[in-house]
């Protein structure tokens, strides 16, 4: 998955579909649209899902080994049954990807919640033991009207980005384009 920053119009469709599809609790946003330089020159909207880092700092600092990275696709998951909600991962991640409910019963935090690109969870069964089927495509990428968030095979994404670059070059916006890479 790639986040192509420039065309985002901050419609927040990605936030809405993510919340709706993943049924995340109040205060938890697996993806957030952030605006840099609001009202100033160079204003930029950025959808911020988890970046699934190569060497995730959240995984390194988790004291109970609740966070793990799947080798096949590099997606970082959290084992909710192991997580104690200490919040140390939230302080380690520079992008604010680990999310916690604002407050639970007796001031307790909930288990950590994060974006995992809507792929099949590590335990593909729900509470009733039924198999969970997930289309292998993030919902945010499916609804994004401007193509800011794109998902697919690496080669597909590279091709798409090359086409966009060619388009921009033709329009004489090459200099601006470099800012986004």
């Amino acid at each position: 998955m790639d986040v192509y920053h420039s065309p985002c119009i901050k419609c927040r469709g990605c936030e809405a579909i993510c919340k709706n599809f993943n049924q995340t609790p109040e205060g938890v946003y697996r993806i957030r649209v952030i605006t840099i330089n609001e009202g100033k020159e160079g204003q930029l909207n950025l959808p911020m899902p988890c970046l699934q880092c190569n060497d995730p700092p959240c995984m390194k600092v988790c004291p109970v080994k609740a966070i793990w990275k799947r080798e096949e696709d590099g997606i970082v998951f959290v084992k909710k049954d192991v997580c104690i909600g200490c919040g140390y991962c939230a302080t380690a991640c520079p992008f604010g990807s680990p999310q916690f409910r604002k407050s639970g019963a007796f001031g307790l935090d909930g288990k950590m919640d994060k974006c995992f690109y809507c792929v099949q969870p590590y335990d593909p069964k729900d509470e009733k033991g039924q198999e969970i089927f997930r289309e292998p495509k993030p919902r945010c990428a499916m609804v994004c009207p401007t193509g800011t968030i794109i998902a697919g095979e690496q080669s597909e994404i590279a091709k798409m980005l090359r086409e966009r670059a060619a388009e921009k070059m033709a329009m004489g916006e090459l200099e601006r384009l470099f800012l986004f890479f």
Binding site: V61, V64, Y88
Partner: peptide, 11 residues
């Protein structure tokens, strides 16, 4: 015993 990641300073 939950604190088993000995690479984390918290643990």
């Amino acid at each position: 015993t939950l604190f088993r990641n000995l690479g984390s300073w918290l643990a």
